[in-house]
Amino acid sequence: MWDVEIRGMASAHAIIASSIFMATVMPAALVNKFSVYGTHMVWLYCVAGSITVVNIAVFWLLGISPPTKKNTLSYKISRFFRSCLYFLLSCLFFHTVVVLYGAPLLESALETFSLAVLLSTLTTLRCLCILGPNVQAWIRVFSRDGAMSVWDTSLQITTGCSVIGAWLGAFPIPLDWDRPWQVWPISCTLGATIGFLTGLLAAPVWIHWHRKQLTYKLK
């Protein structure tokens, strides 16, 4: 059972990771003068979009999402809208945090918000896919020893890695190297993306490595 789940997770993560590479490569054919630095916003939204689509598709196909109690259409719609609301709130939350970290308030607000969108895509969206719009479950997963399945653990790892990646990405900004990737918010978005990729890679490996120690309580 373990191996099956881990293998499934590894393949799902591989698909998500490849979608990021696709989103980096594909627009070059479509958009004129596309480059990760030059047209950074385009790249950012391509990546965010592709991750969204692939995530939703993969988790829907795998059926990881928690079982819904009611199967009516209106419940599904309200779930959908709540998810959207949560996503928006998380964007605003990340935006606020980034501003508190010292991003300019008015100047380049679009860039800051795009970073927030990317971070939300990398973290909140996966939460929504795996746990659904259920704050209690989120708190459970992100409190200590709260994971109850392999997917919860992978969620913890990828989320942590993305945030730490963005955090580390801010370090080179004060250096006076005048490199194109030091422009706000490129280093942070790149950091977050690389962190996310690392998380995707690390999660199955880590779980495989620790599969003896991991025992999940069931509800």
């Binding site: 970290y101 010292g102 900004i173 004060p174």
Partner: peptide, 30 residues
């Protein structure tokens, strides 16, 4: 450059510290 901009390092660390404390508080009360 980091010496010239040392304040950035400290602000950054302090913010992270506050967020970590916030997480600690959340964890404790919730």
């Amino acid at each position: 450059s980091f010496i010239e901009e040392e304040h950035q390092t400290w602000y950054f660390l302090l913010n992270t510290l506050c967020l970590a404390v916030f997480q600690d508080v959340c964890r404790r009360y919730f």
